[in-house]
Simulated assay, not measured.
Amino acid sequence: MGSLVVTHPFHPLAGQRLVVLFTKRRAGSVVFVCASGVSRSVTLPQEWTDRAEEPAGHRLSAEGLSAARALVNALASRRIGDDGGGS
Rank of each mutant, 00 (worst) to 15 (best):
A76T: 15
M1Q: 08
A14W: 07
E53D: 15
V38R: 13
L75M: 11
W48H: 12
V20S: 02
F22I: 03
G81L: 08
L65M: 12
D83C: 04
A74D: 14
T23A: 09
E47W: 08
R59D: 11
N73A: 14
R59N: 14
N73R: 14
S36G: 02
G57D: 07
Q16S: 12
D50G: 04
L18C: 01
L21A: 06
R40S: 09
L75K: 13
A74I: 05
R17W: 08
R59M: 11
A76Y: 06
A67E: 14
G84C: 10
W48Y: 12
L13Q: 06
T7N: 03
H58D: 09
V33W: 00
D82Q: 12
V20Q: 03
G86P: 00
L13V: 04
V72Y: 05
L21V: 05
G86M: 02
G85Y: 07
S36H: 06
G86L: 05
G37T: 03
G28S: 06
G57C: 04
A35M: 01
L60G: 04
S66G: 14
L60D: 13
M1F: 10
M1L: 11
D50S: 02
M1G: 07
Q16I: 05
R79V: 11
T49A: 02
G85S: 10
L75C: 11
P12N: 04
S66A: 15
L65F: 05
V19R: 09
V38H: 12
G64R: 04
A62T: 09
C34Q: 01
T49V: 03
S61I: 04
V72P: 03
T49L: 01
V72K: 10
V6L: 01
V19T: 15
D50H: 02
G84R: 08
H11Q: 07
G81H: 10
S87G: 09
